[in-house]
Amino acid sequence: MKSNAQEKHEIRPGQSLELLKELHILTRDGKMNQDSRRKLKQVYHLYQFIEPLMQEVMNAQSRVSLVDHGAGKSYLGFILYDLFFKPMLASAEADSPARASKIYGIETRDELVERSRELAQRLAFPGMEFLNLSVAESTSSQALPEQIDIVTALHACNTATDDAIEFALKKKARYMVLVPCCQAEVAAELRKTKGDAVRNNPLSELWRHPIHTREFGSQITNVLRCLQLESHGYQVRVTELVGWEHSMKNELIIAEYKGQKSGKAARRLAEILDTTGLQSLEKRFFTQLA
């Protein structure tokens, strides 16, 4: 069992212990169990990817807005605010643009939205706002500004990741941080069109057997998403989340808007949809020709 000193060493400097207790990562006497330790490690790992993106935006315009889709209990949002927003706002002048910085948590479960609102108020985190919306609803919601700097969607199930991408494209997001999950839609389409695809495409052997259909469907979904993002002018990096060994859904997609829309990516995406029998998904994986 770890000592208090060892557990404190795992917590980042400046991290509010009171926040970690409210999030039930720490017990009231400051202890962590194995599950809490893993959860904190995961959020800190994500923070390492997101913090430099927030800093880039701050350097460019002195304020940052971030939308976290499928926020759940908002572990990520609260820790981002505690470690990055709170120190920044503490040193900002009263009329500084930094005061306009904001984190929006989007979540459909009303009890989690209310709990997060109460916690933000209790901790005096004025730059956090929580909205009871689906990812799809948020795209047209008047409660969100026209432009958002960073969009995150962590384990947004099935098509919710694609809805988050559509949201980010509409909001002209500079960065997207996506951890896709449960990509069932493409696998279902592959099963429906399997007969024709198997006859016409020898590569369809990759998804002929049911277990391969599921795995290939998950893989190709993220490939299509990356091509879609590139077609809209984003530079895409795909990596793995360490510390998420308990979940097979540990692929991390980071996209940065560069403005160079790729016609090649758009054409390649269309070709893949055609050769795999997925033409019905053209609307979901919409592209922007250069």
Rank of each mutant, 00 (worst) to 15 (best):
K8I: 05
E10D: 13
I11R: 04
G14A: 09
Q15K: 01
E22S: 12
L26A: 13
R28Q: 14
Q34W: 15
R38C: 10
L40K: 09
V43C: 08
H45V: 11
Y47Q: 01
F49I: 12
E51H: 08
P52Q: 06
P52A: 04
M54G: 07
Q55F: 02
E56K: 13
M58F: 09
Q61N: 01
S62I: 02
S62M: 10
V67G: 00
D68A: 03
H69S: 00
G77V: 08
I79Q: 07
I79N: 00
L80F: 05
Y81A: 08
D82G: 04
K86L: 09
S91L: 03
E93N: 00
A94H: 15
K102W: 12
I103E: 02
E107G: 02
D110T: 12
D110E: 15
D110I: 10
L112W: 08
R115N: 11
R115E: 13
E118R: 14
E118F: 06
A120Q: 07
A120Y: 10
R122L: 09
A124F: 13
F125Q: 04
G127C: 07
G127F: 02
E129Y: 11
E137M: 07
S138D: 01
S141D: 10
Q142M: 10
A143T: 15
A143P: 07
L144W: 10
E146R: 15
Q147C: 08
D149F: 06
D149C: 09
H155R: 11
N158M: 04
A160C: 09
A160R: 01
A164T: 02
K170W: 00
K170N: 07
K170A: 07
R174Y: 06
C181F: 15
Q183A: 13
E185M: 15
A188N: 15
R191L: 06
K192R: 13
R199I: 14
N200V: 03
N201F: 09
L203F: 12
S204I: 11
E205Q: 14
E205Y: 10
W207E: 00
R208F: 11
T213W: 01
E215H: 10
E215D: 12
N222V: 09
V223N: 08
R225S: 13
L227N: 05
Q228V: 06
Q228M: 07
E230V: 04
S231F: 05
V242P: 12
E245F: 12
H246Q: 15
M248I: 13
E251D: 14
E251I: 14
L252R: 00
I254P: 02
G259M: 02
R268V: 05
I272K: 01
D274T: 04
L278T: 05
Q279G: 07
Q279L: 10
R284C: 05
F286Q: 10
T287L: 01
Q288V: 08
A290T: 00
